[in-house]
Amino acid sequence: MESILNWISGNEQIIYIVILMVFVGIEIIGRVPSVLHTPLMSGANAIHGVVIIGAIIVMGKAESDNYLALILGFLAVILGTINVVGGFVVTDRMLEMFKSKKKAPKNK
């Protein structure tokens, strides 16, 4: 019991971040029109690509003779980058169409 309380006070900041972010995430989504659900899912998908930062840290810390860590870390960096870059590009492509759609009625 004591160790749990210690852990909580030791990680106070992190726990606050988690709680606040949960509410921010819910608030943001709650106001999205269903039309934008797919781009939003895709955008969120790109954002959880922040996991790439962990991959970079793993890679950067690995000793140069620890091949297992190097190879796994390298793979992780590649996969994380694909998630981030691919995610943002796909989202942009989807949204590009929404933009052209908005212009169309004005031209008429």
Partner: peptide, 29 residues
């Protein structure tokens, strides 16, 4: 949430923020 776990692991706030944000938003969606 998995990305947020990485945030815990390294005490990295941006991974934590991004991960939890998507975790919460995604669950609601």
């Amino acid at each position: 949430v998995a990305a947020a776990c990485g945030g815990f692991l390294y005490g990295n706030k941006v991974m934590l923020t991004g991960g939890i944000l998507v975790g919460a938003a995604g669950t609601l969606l």
